[in-house]
């Protein structure tokens, strides 16, 4: 079936989640999702000499973990879909170098996890591939290095800033098997409401989340109440407040079933300002907390709307505004 709104895809062939794996860094392992993590890092350098290598190793570990969790072998996987935040998505491609399987590198900044799931589900539904591994990670220290200041610089963070998650997750999708099923997905449009503040990603991405949520609800003919959880990726505290306002103006009321992965991942007392962010944020929360709740039946229908800010240090230094994107996937517990 060709999508009617050119964004939403309905899957009839049940792309099924047969395995998942998540890793949280030391700070994430102290947070509310701690109990659901597959693995907790003690050392955020993973015995490597640079943070870039640590992020790569993190991804390798996550991918192996998910394949193992699905009870599969590496050569059962047809294709690896993955991305990260580093320039030229080096963590993913360098991790893929190790595996020797087909690799499709993706980039939607922090929306990469949902992008990979939406694309993976499409590839399975249209019978292009039968087993797909979707993996995304990020690392606080490598992201700080690339986007902001040296770690040891004694600067103050603005109150609207967010904390890049050290961690990530991988999901194995299969044409057959038991597990939660991806029933629909909406690929997002790039939306820019003219925000230029690099320290306020939530405000940059909220309009994109609004756009994708509205498109998805319309495209699938569902209402907010039909979902047990609607989770945005990393809008953070301010961004999710903005999203609630924006949607309310459009006549859509988000209720108790709305959460943001950036708000779920850290304890309130941690000094993470507006909450978690980074491509690992939604990947970690999805593959730990959300997956756990889908498997034990607390959640029957979840809409993950991962959000990404598509800037680079060059574009923001040149004074460009920051475009956002959001991709949505609907995951349902199989009957």
């Amino acid at each position: 079936m060709v999508s009617t709104n050119k964004q939403t895809v309905i899957f009839n062939n049940k792309p099924t989640i047969v395995g998942s794996y998540s890793i949280g860094g030391p700070l994430e392992s102290k947070g509310p999702i701690s109990d659901y993590l597959s693995y907790k890092l003690q050392d955020d350098k993973l015995n490597e000499d640079t943070f870039e290598k640590a992020e790569r190793k993190l991804l390798e570990h996550i991918i192996f973990g998910a394949i193992d969790n699905a009870g599969l072998k590496l050569n059962d996987i047809d294709v690896l879909l993955g991305g990260d935040l580093l320039n030229q998505i080096v963590s993913s491609s360098f991790a893929a170098r190790k595996f020797g399987i087909t690799f499709i590198g993706l980039y939607s900044a922090c929306a990469t996890m949902a992008e990979s799931l939406a694309l993976g589900a499409t590839l399975i539904d249209r019978q292009v591939f039968s087993k797909v591994c979707c993996a995304t990670a990020s690392h606080f220290s490598s992201a700080e290095r690339q986007y902001r200041f040296p770690l040891e610089l004694g600067n103050q963070r603005p109150p609207t800033s967010q904390w890049t998650v050290t961690g990530g997750g991988a999901t194995i999708l299969s044409a057959r098997g038991d597990g939660p099923v991806i029933t629909s997905a909406t690929f997002g449009k790039v939306v820019d409401f003219g925000i230029k503040d690099v320290n306020n990603m939530g405000a940059c991405m909220a309009p994109a989340a609004m756009d994708t949520i509205m498109t998805h609800l319309k495209g699938t003919n569902t209402k907010v109440e039909d979902y047990d959880l609607i989770a945005t990726g990393d809008l953070g505290k301010l961004g999710s407040e903005i999203l609630v306002d924006l949607l309310e103006r459009k006549g859509i009321k988000l209720g108790q079933n709305y959460s943001d992965c950036g708000n779920l991942i850290y304890n309130k007392q941690e000094k993470v300002f507006m909450g978690g962010s980074g491509s690992g944020c939604s990947a970690t929360v999805l593959n730990s907390y959300i997956m756990h709740k889908l498997l034990n039946g607390d959640f029957k229908k979840v809409l993950l709307v991962a959000t990404g800010a598509l800037l680079s240090t060059t574009t923001s230094q040149q004074g460009d505004s920051i475009p956002g994107i959001a991709h949505a996937v609907c995951i349902e517990r199989s009957k």
């Binding site: 109150p159 609207t160 409401f193 003219g194 925000i195 306020n200 301010l238 903005i242 306002d245």
Partner: peptide, 11 residues
């Protein structure tokens, strides 16, 4: 939108 966000910024 920028005006709305500015008004919402934590001080």
């Amino acid at each position: 939108y920028n005006m709305y966000v500015d008004a919402k910024l934590p001080k």
